[in-house]
């Protein structure tokens, strides 16, 4: 019977390790998911891309639409200075967005880009973007910010329109100073 109890304890230990490992697995899903999104281009990261091939495909046009969003707590106006552009894949293009701080305090924000259709995120290479850094605006300040990008020639043939959408979030901390 001692044997039976020992055997049971051994099984218990093994199963507890499995349970603990699965708890860890839940957390491991976080970086794993980010990696998957990065690879599939569902969510593009906010760092500069490298452009290897700059050959321009003059036979093809892609329409890029620009969109802007503000989370409600941010007292700014944020708009693209052009609604859309037509570009060739491989062509370096620069466009501008404008932000204005309507409040009487200094506010820092961070923009997160998003793409429609999502698959386009993989082929949308940003060389320069205001989303790479946080933007701090003094009261009443207006700033025009460039986005320089190249659409990769690998873009699937059936994608002819890409929407580039930015959402500005207030950076945690500046909101607290203001006392909500």
């Amino acid at each position: 019977m001692v044997n039976q109890a020992q055997l049971n304890l051994l099984t218990l230990r093994k199963l507890l390790i499995v349970a603990a490992a699965m708890f860890g697995f839940g957390y491991a899903l976080v970086p794993f998911y980010q990696k998957i999104c990065e690879v599939t281009g569902v969510n593009n990261v906010i760092k500069a891309d490298e452009v290897a091939n700059t050959q321009i495909d003059v036979a093809r046009f892609v329409t890029i639409e620009f969109d802007s969003n503000l989370r409600s707590h941010l007292p700014w106006t944020f708009r693209p200075l052009q609604t859309n552009v037509r570009v060739h894949p491989g062509e370096l293009t620069t466009v501008s967005y404008e932000i204005r701080n309507n409040s009487a305090r200094t506010v820092t924000g961070q923009a997160i880009p998003s793409y429609g259709p999502q698959v386009a995120g993989r082929y949308f290479r940003k060389l320069d973007c205001f989303c790479f850094t946080q933007q701090t605006l003094q009261p009443g300040e207006v700033r025009q910010m460039p986005v320089a990008f190249v659409v990769d020639q690998g873009l699937p043939g059936d994608v002819n329109t890409i929407t580039l959408s930015y959402t500005f979030f207030e950076v945690e901390g500046t909101a607290k100073q203001a006392g909500g």
Partner: peptide, 14 residues
């Protein structure tokens, strides 16, 4: 149960 209850615990902890 052993495989997924800890994952739920992780999710609600997050």
């Amino acid at each position: 149960l052993i495989a997924v209850m800890p994952v739920l615990a992780g999710a609600v902890t997050m």
